[in-house]
Every structure is written in C-alpha cells, then in structure tokens.
Design a protein around this nucleic acid. Structure first.
Lengths: 183, 183
DNA sequence: GAACTGTGTTGAGGCAGGTTAACAATCCTG
DNA sequence: CAGGATTGTTAACCTGCCTCAACACAGTTC
C-alpha cells in the first residue's frame, strides 16, 4: 500500500507549479518573463530560477535559450492554467461554502492546488456553483447548513455516522500547545 | 507574496506524516513498531527509516533509542491522529459528497491530508455530516445537486459567476495528451 | 569605446529524503 | 554456547531545490 509514494511522482512539484504560474502571470502582466522577474516574483535567487528552468525545459514545460526569453510550451501553459483554476475553485469553495477565513482559504488553496485531481476540481466547481446559485434548494441549503451543528457533541448522542469508534471532530480540534499559556 | 514558500515550512512533510501514521498503525495493530515493520509498511529501506526516525526525534515527535523501541510522543500522537482524521474526512467528502471514484478520492486524500488546516477539516466534516444527514433540506439538496449542470456550457449563457473572463471548467478538463491515440 | 549597471549563468555547498552495501547488535535454536 | 538469521546502524551516494559568490554577457552613458 504505497499511494503515499506517488506524492513525489506528481506531474509537477509544488515549486514547479509556482514557477509555471509565475511565468504565465508575468507574460500576461508585462508581456515577457525574464529570469530576474521570475526570481523577484517568487522571492528566490536568480540562480535558482536558472536551474529550475533547466529542469522545466527537460520536462518540456518551458523553452529557454541562454540569455534568451522564457516561454511556456503548450503543456506548460495547460498545467499553469489548470493549477490557476484549481486555486480559484478551491479558494472559492473554502471561503464561500465552508466559510473559513480568507487567509486560511488562500493558504490551503495554495498548498493543494497542484495536488487535486481534475475529477475533484471539476466536481468542486460544480458543487460551489450550485450552492451559490439561485436555485431555491440551494438557498434553503445555505440557511439550514448555517444552523447545522458544529461538533459531534451536538449530534444526537452516539449517532455520529462519520466517526468510527472515536470522534473525528475531537482529533481535528487544535488542542493548546504544550507550554501554552496563550490568552 | 510568498505563501507558496510556506509549503516547506509545514509542521511535518508528506513523508513525515506517513511515518507517524505508520508508527501509530503498527502500535495499534501489533503492539509495537520496529524499524523493519515501518520499512515494510511504507515500502522504504530500513536505513531510510533509521534516518527519518532521527529527524522525527529531533522534532520531538517520536522517541527511539539505538536498537530500541519506537514510540510516539504526545505531539507525535496528536499529529498522527489529526492526519488520520483528515484523511477520513477528506475521503468521505470526496467520494460521498463530490461523488468522485473511490480510487481518486483515496489518492487525493492521501496527497493533501497533511496540508489542510484544522479550520478546513472541521468545516469539511460539518458539511459532509450535514449533507449526509436525514435533515429534509439535505435530502432535497442531494437530489437537486445530482441534477445540477455539469459544466459551464450548460449554465445560463454568460452567467458563470465563478469563472472570470475564461471558463474555469474548460481549463480543468483533461485534454488528450500530445501524442494521444488512446482508445 | 571604456566603464558602469543590470541581467544571466556557473559552481560549490546545504538540507531533505531516499537508495545500496557493509557491518554491528540481537535473538533463536540445536 | 556457537552459528545463523533477523534486525538495526552507518557510510557513501543520488536527486530536488534552494543559497551565495563569482563571473559572463548586454545595454547604457559619457
């Protein structure tokens, strides 16, 4: 059972995804993406950019000749825009449907944008669209959900279908850290 | 703007999360977690385990003396069970609410289980519980959602609120790969 | 056209997380 | 208790992704 090892075999790593997005963003903002722009945009060194570009080029995601322009290949472009869309869908879902704070939504979206599969993204978009829609059931749903219980403790006793023997909610809640005399 | 760099500064990495989960699982299955068990469980070499244990120990997540037993510390235990709960919540949400195939749900859950913040997990559990519940609105919702449009193309023309200038759905869909003469 | 400034590349090095090979410790059994 | 099998550690090495320092190229400016 080693699904977990496929983490390292993803099409692109977290870093790569952000390099591709940076190139796409710079292209559309300034019309071109130079090494120094990418470096500034991502907050890494120019040499880091150079070596990452080599790596991206070897995967056929960008083109880049010495001292020359950086361009996304079609697959690079596709990956960049898919990642970007994933981020938007995730952020929207997390903040508007789940209702977590903007900052949390953005951060979580950034962490997982390159990891969710297309199937999940598509369904997430569909769910988000539907819940936000004018459909009468969607409106009812939003109200009823707002009023729904916040923890297993508030469920009918012993009726927590999701949790097995132990309450999932409890292990999700952040206990105070060890030395924590936080206010 | 470099949220993206915090990826590497997470409490634990993907690998670490799985080592912790492995230790927890072995402890509860066999009563003990030895190096070789962890190695088998995760499909890595024993030496890899030894060095990862050193790293986890330095972070205060496990205890392990030479040739001795491996134990989770309280923080290690907490992290392991939070990750495990995240996985369960995510899998449930992805497969039952979004309706993606089991295999996809499991894989995606595994990829992101250690990355989602507690706030998101908690709300995800709440949403999942509510949608699955006997609440009359939940039942209506499930039906209406099942019938909801699958793509922007089916939305009222030009009324795709989520997508900005370009349709998100289009960029999420997997186009056929370059050389693809797949059946 | 020499000098200065900005841009890009190379090289050496660090840390994480894996590998294999060799060896050390422990345990099991005749 | 000797030998062999199992278990655990170390050492050397690899890749990914980053850093800094040094150098190469390009574009002003005088």
């Amino acid at each position: 059972m080693d699904i977990w090892k496929r983490f390292g075999e993803k099409e692109v790593s977290h870093s790569m995804a952000h390099y591709l997005q940076a190139v796409a963003a710079l292209k559309s903002d300034k019309g071109h993406a130079r090494v120094v722009d990418i470096a500034d945009h991502l907050g890494v060194s120019k040499s880091g950019v150079t070596s990452m570009l080599r790596s991206l080029q070897s995967r056929g995601l960008v083109t880049h000749e010495r001292y020359g322009a950086v361009e996304l290949t079609p697959s690079g472009q596709r990956l960049a825009s898919r990642t970007e869309s994933n981020r938007r869908v995730l952020t929207m879902f997390l903040s508007e449907i789940l209702g977590v704070p903007e900052a949390v939504a953005s951060e979580d979206a950034c962490m997982i944008e390159h990891l969710v599969s297309p199937e999940v993204s598509i369904e997430l978009l569909r769910l988000t669209t539907f819940v936000r829609s004018k459909h009468p059931v969607a409106a009812q749903f939003r109200d009823a959900y707002k009023a729904s219980p916040r923890s297993c403790a508030e469920h009918a006793p012993g009726a927590c279908e999701l949790c097995g023997e132990t309450c999932l909610h409890e292990s999700l809640v952040c206990e105070p850290k060890d030395g924590g005399a936080e206010v």
